[in-house]
Every structure is written in C-alpha cells, then in structure tokens.
Write a protein that binds this DNA or RNA. Structure first.
Length: 332
DNA sequence: TCATCATGCCGAT
DNA sequence: TCGGCCTGATGAT
C-alpha cells in the first residue's frame, strides 16, 4: 500500500513502458467510462508523481489524476522494463520480458517470471478495473483507487499547488506548475536574498514550524509535506528522537530541516527498493529485511515490543485518525 | 473459512 | 465523526 515511494515507482514504470505510446484507454468496471472515452487513443506524454498522487499527461493537455487511497493498486501485464536493481523481486531479475502481472501499490511482488506464457494478451481484467491503459505490448490496470479523474491543465496545476513539497518530484520540467518542488536547490537562507522562489525545503520548514498542531499530525498533512504516510511518519519522528506531540511551533527550524533531509533520504531509498526500510542495517540484514517486514522499522507495528534503542516498550496511540507508534523514552 | 484491519483521503452528516 | 472505496494480508475459528 502506497506512501509516496510507491507512487513514484508507479510513475516511473508507466514512464518507461507507456509514455510515448498511443494508448487504448478503457474502464472495464464502467465507473470511469466517460473519462476513458476522453483519453482513448491519445498519446501519453508524461507520467509524474507528487506526494501520493499520480499525474498522467496526455497530448491534448488532459491530465489523469489518480490517488490510490488505502487499497488501490496497479497491475502490470506484458512487456515491462525492470525498474531498479535492488528492488524487491521474486523470480529472477532481468528474467524473461513476459510476466503475467506485477502489482504495485503494496509491497511488490512479481508473479512467476513465465507465468504469463499460457495466458492470452491482453489478459482478462481481474476484479474491478477502474481504468485500463494499454499499448500494443503493455497493459496497466488500476483497481480500487480513491480518486481517478481527468483534469484540464489549469485544474491539474491547482491540484499540484494544493500539495506541499515532495523531495522526489521534479516539477521543473512541468511547464506552468508551481515552482515549489525543485529539489536541485536546497536553499537554506538565500531564497529571499536571491529573489528566487522559495525552495521546497524552506517551504516545508515554514509550514511545519508555523502551526501549533502536533508535529505528528503535521507530517501527515499533505499540504505541509507531500508523500509521508503512517509508517514514514512514525519512523521519521523516531529517527529524529522527536516527541510526536510537540507543537509545530516548538520544533526548531534546524530540526524541521533535518526532518526534510531525512525524508528525502528515506524516500529515495524507498523508491529504489520498493519497501520502507528505516533502520540502519548491515548489507546482510538489509537483504533479509527486503522479505521480512518485521526487520525494517524502529517502532512501526512494534507495540509492546522493547524499543531497539532504549528497551522501553513501544506504545501506540491514535493521532490524526491513525495509529501512531513511538518510544516514550527516546522521543521526548 | 471468516472477520478484522490497513502504508488514505474525501464527502456527507 | 462516519461511511465509502471494494483489495489483500493476517489472525482467529
């Protein structure tokens, strides 16, 4: 299930295998029939992720905006370009081109490398497929999204502008969009002096430190910083040894900046591997963690277990309508 | 085999 | 604050 890293991986997969192709767009489920008609037959020109949202730009300027919500996912069939070495993959890497399906939207796994050989292409839709994007060789099926809509360019720009900065978004190449998320600059204090647009990092710091809401809530607020979900929230706070209840206003700017920097590192690593590993592990442990979720994190899903640093039992409480895991000894 | 829960978020109430 | 989305993993039965 999707925090920002997953959506970036999906954007990249679609970028590799469907961008530059003229697509057959359909809605086997029927709930997106009108939108599918509007996009059917168009060239897909760009695939971008901002936070947890996916923006697919077509030649007409129409943009398909997708949010996976809690259990949305993309299923890929047919020819797929391997994303990144080091990613979670069962079966051989760089194996045969033909794969029955690769699911993205949860911890990813590849269904047997040659499982598709006996199956027709394109395959029958499985379950409630809201949208199918199909080139001659690759099919991407979207199921269970919480948002799936066609926007015109100005509506899409508005949707992006409503989001906080994302360290992995490269909006510089997206003409007309908020100049918020150019990750190449990390502008410390020079923005004003240079008269340039504020850096994403400084935007995040400003938004996080200007409110009295608990930092544990602010990290989940997609207008403060985009892409962080419940796991990354808990783990970022632990890594910073920060009490989740600290009001944003009381978080020193240096601490807020360190949170941004750490998020950028964790996100990049999540995009690379496809899983959320937040502990500092040896290479061997890291390999084990790719297949064993219980090895990956400091506090997430570890209620009652001893904190790996202090030994204090990890506690869970509700914050921002979600379970928040933290160590009362380390984070104060 | 069944019930519950989950890495999210929106809109109705 | 609650239900919807309508999936898949997990743990209880």
């Amino acid at each position: 299930m999707p925090e920002g890293h997953t959506v970036h991986r999906i954007a990249r997969q679609l970028g590799l295998d469907l961008v530059g192709h003229r697509l057959a767009v359909s809605s086997p489920q029927g709930r997106f029939a009108a939108g599918a008609r509007r996009l059917d037959g168009q060239l897909l020109v760009a695939s971008r992720a901002v936070g947890k949202q996916l923006f697919l730009e077509f030649e007409s300027g129409d943009v398909l905006r997708v949010h996976l919500g809690l259990y949305g996912a993309w299923d890929f069939y047919g020819r797929l370009t391997p994303l990144t070495p080091g990613a979670v993959a069962r079966g051989s890497m760089g194996a045969p081109r033909l794969r029955r399906a690769v699911r993205m939207g949860e911890d990813e796994r590849e269904v047997g490398a040659d499982a598709g050989i006996d199956h027709p292409f394109p395959p029958e839709p499985v379950g409630q497929v809201r949208v199918r994007l199909a080139s001659a060789e690759t099919v991407a099926d979207l199921r269970g999204p919480s948002a799936c809509e066609v926007l015109d360019p100005s509506q899409a720009a508005l949707a992006v502008a409503r989001l906080g900065p994302d360290p992995a978004a490269d909006l510089a190449e997206w003409p007309g969009y908020a100049p918020l998320s150019n990750p190449s600059t990390n502008g410390q204090a020079t923005d004003a002096a240079l008269g340039s647009a504020p850096s994403p990092r400084s935007v995040m710091i400003d938004r996080l430190t200007s409110r009295s809401v608990a930092v544990g809530q602010l990290l989940m607020d997609q207008s403060v910083v985009a892409g962080i979900g419940n796991i990354y929230r808990a783990e970022l706070l632990f890594r910073a040894r920060l009490d989740p209840h600290t009001p944003g206003r009381r978080v020193p700017r240096e601490t807020a900046g360190a949170l941004w920097d750490d998020w950028a590192v964790l996100l990049a690593e999540g995009i690379r591997t496809g899983v959320i590993i937040t502990r500092d592990l040896t290479p061997t442990e890291h390999t084990d963690a790719l297949t064993d979720p219980t090895l990956r994190n400091w506090v997430y899903h570890r209620t009652g277990l001893p904190c790996l640093v202090s030994g204090t039992p990890v506690v869970v409480e509700e914050m921002a309508n979600r379970n928040l895991y933290w160590c009362p000894t380390c984070q104060k």
